[in-house]
Simulated scan of single mutants.
Amino acid sequence: MSVLSEEVPFAGDAIVRPPRDGFVRQVRSRLFATKGDTALTLVLAAVIVAFGTFALDWLVIGAAAPWGSAQDCAAARGACWPFVVEKHRLILFGTYPYEEQWRPFLASVLLVGGVGASMLPSFHNRRLLWLWGAASIGFYVLMAGGYLGLESVQPERWNGLPILLMLAIFGLVFAYPLGIGLALARHQSQLPAIRAFAVLYIEIVRGVPMIMVLFLGLFVLPLMMPEGVSLSPLLTTMIALVFFHSAYFAEAVRGGLQAVPDGQFEAANSQGLTYVQKVRLIVLPQALSKSMPEVMNTVLGAYKDTSLVVIIGIHDIMATAKMAFSDPGWQHYGLEAYLLVGVWYLITCWCLSSYSRWLERRTS
């Protein structure tokens, strides 16, 4: 009898598939197969029940109602939702003029919408360049003002969520192609000087902490500018982020380049393709596909690390959260402020990781 007939026996013309285990049997085999598995399952179940009970009590049962006041929060044993209602605009938009906060809201929607459109395969062409060009111009016009009758707002008052999105998105958008260039220079360049520069740059940047790069960008880069040329702290911070993340992208892409078989290079050479044609049409598509999991992991890490800019005085959403509970009337509710920030990071990082898994399945 063949192997096929043993695994999937035939009954006439119909295929008889082996019966699947029931739900109870699957649970028993996965959670209670041995005494050790049973003990671990019971301990974890007890922890989950205890944590769930505490979370339910703190978030709902013992919490102050959102329409309450600070006095209601003082009497409550749980979360202070009136604090979130009162301070959510400060957490999201910081010191941006209160009556103009619809502008940073729309600017944030533009950037988030641009990221969402970038995830659609139908936009993986030149339309994506036009989309981001329009989104970038729209973001600047909304945030800075001075155009279309909008009140001018200085960059020092740009705070909160728009700053987080701006630094993370534009920093990654410019760092990725720079990282691809560095990876090609390190892996394929025939010129020793270019390869040595790429190796030196990547190893030095990856060998120092991100905070050091941010401080260099904020305090050293302006000193290197020609006389009369000044850079805003936001711009210098973004440049520092681009330089830092590009080194990590370079190593991720270099791993993909090393995974491309040598036969692909030989086949391209046999067809008489130029170096640019070989890289653009044959090498890079395969290398980027193979390096996609590591690239997306770098994107997630870089997005979360953007919150470190608070150390150099850039008021992103972490800094505005601290500003919110610095109010003397709401000093005891920092947990609620950071919970709101944590929910934002959880949702956005979950979306990025889900897209990463989908993209990996699609390109495999």
Score class of each variant (00 low, 15 high):
residue 4 L to T: 09
residue 7 E to F: 05
residue 8 V to W: 07
residue 11 A to L: 10
residue 12 G to R: 05
residue 17 R to I: 05
residue 18 P to V: 04
residue 21 D to L: 15
residue 22 G to H: 08
residue 24 V to S: 14
residue 27 V to K: 04
residue 39 A to V: 15
residue 51 F to V: 15
residue 51 F to Q: 13
residue 53 T to G: 13
residue 55 A to H: 06
residue 58 W to A: 02
residue 58 W to P: 00
residue 60 V to K: 10
residue 63 A to R: 02
residue 64 A to N: 11
residue 66 P to K: 13
residue 69 S to H: 10
residue 69 S to K: 09
residue 70 A to Y: 07
residue 77 R to Q: 13
residue 78 G to L: 04
residue 79 A to P: 07
residue 83 F to C: 03
residue 84 V to A: 14
residue 84 V to L: 15
residue 86 E to F: 08
residue 87 K to W: 07
residue 88 H to T: 08
residue 97 P to V: 05
residue 97 P to N: 08
residue 98 Y to S: 13
residue 98 Y to E: 13
residue 98 Y to K: 06
residue 101 Q to G: 07
residue 103 R to T: 07
residue 107 A to I: 03
residue 111 L to Q: 03
residue 112 V to K: 03
residue 112 V to L: 14
residue 113 G to Q: 08
residue 113 G to A: 15
residue 118 S to K: 02
residue 126 R to T: 09
residue 126 R to G: 15
residue 127 R to E: 09
residue 128 L to H: 02
residue 131 L to F: 05
residue 133 G to T: 09
residue 137 I to C: 10
residue 139 F to S: 02
residue 139 F to C: 08
residue 154 Q to H: 14
residue 156 E to L: 13
residue 158 W to G: 00
residue 159 N to E: 12
residue 162 P to L: 03
residue 166 M to F: 10
residue 167 L to G: 01
residue 172 L to Y: 00
residue 173 V to P: 00
residue 175 A to D: 01
residue 177 P to M: 05
residue 179 G to W: 01
residue 183 A to D: 02
residue 184 L to D: 01
residue 184 L to E: 04
residue 190 Q to P: 04
residue 192 P to L: 04
residue 197 F to K: 03
residue 197 F to L: 14
residue 198 A to M: 04
residue 202 I to C: 03
residue 202 I to L: 06
residue 205 V to A: 01
residue 206 R to K: 14
residue 217 G to W: 05
residue 221 L to Y: 06
residue 223 L to P: 02
residue 227 E to Y: 12
residue 229 V to A: 09
residue 236 T to N: 03
residue 236 T to E: 00
residue 237 T to Q: 01
residue 237 T to L: 00
residue 240 A to I: 00
residue 242 V to G: 00
residue 243 F to E: 00
residue 250 A to S: 10
residue 252 A to S: 09
residue 253 V to L: 03
residue 254 R to E: 06
residue 259 A to G: 02
residue 261 P to N: 06
residue 261 P to M: 06
residue 262 D to M: 11
residue 269 N to T: 10
residue 270 S to G: 15
residue 271 Q to N: 10
residue 272 G to M: 10
residue 275 Y to I: 11
residue 277 Q to A: 14
residue 278 K to N: 12
residue 278 K to C: 07
residue 278 K to E: 14
residue 279 V to G: 03
residue 280 R to A: 15
residue 282 I to E: 08
residue 287 A to V: 09
residue 288 L to K: 09
residue 292 M to G: 00
residue 295 V to C: 01
residue 307 S to V: 11
residue 309 V to F: 02
residue 313 G to R: 10
residue 313 G to K: 06
residue 314 I to Q: 02
residue 315 H to F: 10
residue 320 T to A: 03
residue 322 K to T: 08
residue 324 A to F: 01
residue 327 D to L: 06
residue 327 D to C: 03
residue 328 P to Q: 03
residue 329 G to D: 12
residue 330 W to C: 04
residue 337 A to K: 07
residue 340 L to P: 09
residue 342 G to P: 09
residue 343 V to R: 11
residue 344 W to C: 13
residue 344 W to G: 05
residue 344 W to K: 04
residue 344 W to T: 14
residue 346 L to D: 12
residue 347 I to S: 12
residue 348 T to L: 14
residue 351 C to G: 09
residue 352 L to F: 12
residue 353 S to P: 04
residue 353 S to V: 10
residue 353 S to R: 14
residue 354 S to F: 11
residue 354 S to Q: 13
residue 358 W to T: 05
residue 358 W to I: 11
residue 361 R to S: 11
